[in-house]
């Protein structure tokens, strides 16, 4: 109660500039996207007509959409889970005090700072069955002789691996910052009670970190759902369309087939999916 009364007069003062700027920037693109999605419009062609929900129907009924959606779901779930688990583990380890901690922290951020297009190309090269360090040297030493990127299942796995590689550092940084908000006294108290690390983790760290952890999942989910560069340079969606996620399909529809109406419809569908899932997540973790 006191909290609210204290705030009465400053309610929106700090919020308005941000909201105004964002609204100004976002309203036109958003309306334009909605409008385009209701048009039959192949760019560079003269004809253009009202389509109603026709574009949405074409998008939702195409088998390619359904296949890409499935690929996206697998990609997003694995990539989010992988990078959160690894990032959390790293944050716990590097929250310890030891010599060289700062250097290791900085080293760990490197995969995030390599330009994504270069990252995709690097992994593609590394995994090449014949001339790549991993695919052509390490794996054969272990007896694995298949070409990972030539096999639909393994290609998807490889793309996920590369994305986890790029994105884990960001999750690590967020969760590490989150850990700083947990008061030391709680750990000391737990130690005096004779609780082991496992118990501290389950009873103190995870409950207290729930919000940051939830937020990390949401941010990571949004990122993963819109990932383009890494997949595009690594596999181009292939082999076939085995690693073609929705952003790649959208890019192809819009900028290869120039079907701007259908691309916009797909963008709206993707937006709806993301909004639905992230709002559910927000409610779940009570952010």
């Amino acid at each position: 109660m006191r909290k609210t009364s204290l705030w009465e007069k400053d309610k929106y003062r700090f919020l308005i500039p941000t909201v105004l700027v964002c609204a100004l920037l976002v309203s036109f693109p958003f309306v334009y996207m909605l409008y385009t999605s209701t048009q039959y419009w192949i760019a560079l062609r003269p004809e253009r007509s009202f389509a109603g929900l026709g574009n949405y129907r074409s998008v939702l009924l195409s088998t390619e959409f359904r296949q890409s959606l499935l690929t996206t779901v697998i990609f997003v779930i694995s990539s989010v889970a992988g990078s959160i688990v690894l990032g959390f583990a790293l944050a716990l380890v590097l929250n310890e005090k030891f010599r060289g901690r700062n250097v290791i922290r900085a080293l760990l951020t490197i995969p995030a700072i390599i330009p994504p297009a270069a990252a995709g190309f690097t992994w593609k090269f590394l995994l090449n069955r014949d001339v790549g360090l991993i695919g052509g040297f390490f794996l054969p030493l272990l007896g694995v002789k298949r070409a990972l990127l030539g096999d639909p299942g393994w290609a998807l796995f490889s793309v996920i691996l590369a994305d986890v590689w790029c994105q884990t550092p960001l999750m690590f940084l967020i969760l590490l910052a989150g850990l700083q908000a947990i008061p030391m006294e709680l750990f000391d108290a737990a130690r005096i009670d004779g609780a082991g690390f496992g118990q501290v983790l389950v009873r103190i760290i995870i409950p207290l970190l729930k919000r940051v952890l939830g937020l990390a999942v949401i941010i990571r989910f949004i990122f993963a759902f819109t990932t383009f560069d890494v997949i595009f340079t690594m596999t181009g969606g292939g082999p076939g369309i085995a690693t073609q996620t929705l952003p790649l399909l959208g890019w192809k529809t819009g900028f290869l087939y120039y079907d701007l109406g259908q691309a916009a419809a797909l963008a709206v569908v993707m937006l709806l999916i993301t909004v639905f899932f992230s709002s559910t997540l927000v409610r779940m973790v009570k952010l």
């Binding site: 941000t18 996207m33 952003p247 691309a263 937006l271």
Partner: peptide, 23 residues
């Protein structure tokens, strides 16, 4: 408002790049 701000990041780039350019 908070969720609306979060949702700004959700629009896929391929869908908004043309209107942003026009803007």
């Amino acid at each position: 408002i908070g969720f609306w701000l979060l949702s700004l990041r959700m629009a896929p780039a391929f869908g908004v790049v043309i209107p942003v350019y026009i803007l």
